[in-house]
Amino acid sequence: MKTELEIRKALRDWIVKTNGKIRPENLTDETPIIEQRIISSLQVMDLLLFLEQLTGKSVDVEKLKPGIFQNVNTLYENFFRKESYVY
């Protein structure tokens, strides 16, 4: 089982790797990843696969709302702390 710090770091690492241009020091847990186009709507599909791997659960895609992809904080809250979108 990963700790909260490890999960947040894994999420940031994935975003940095997927974007390919942003430097790790420029990405915080508050950086708006969709609004600033660090992650595109098409890449959210890959993000969902990554989240499923990390949580070991399936994402309930019909429930998803754009707001939960805002930044690392919202990802952590919704998929890991509250687990509201996985089954």
């Binding site: 709507s41 098409l42 599909m45 754009p66 992809f69």
Partner: peptide, 9 residues
Amino acid sequence: YRDRKMVFP
């Protein structure tokens, strides 16, 4: 199967 594609407004 579920669809993992999303479109943001």
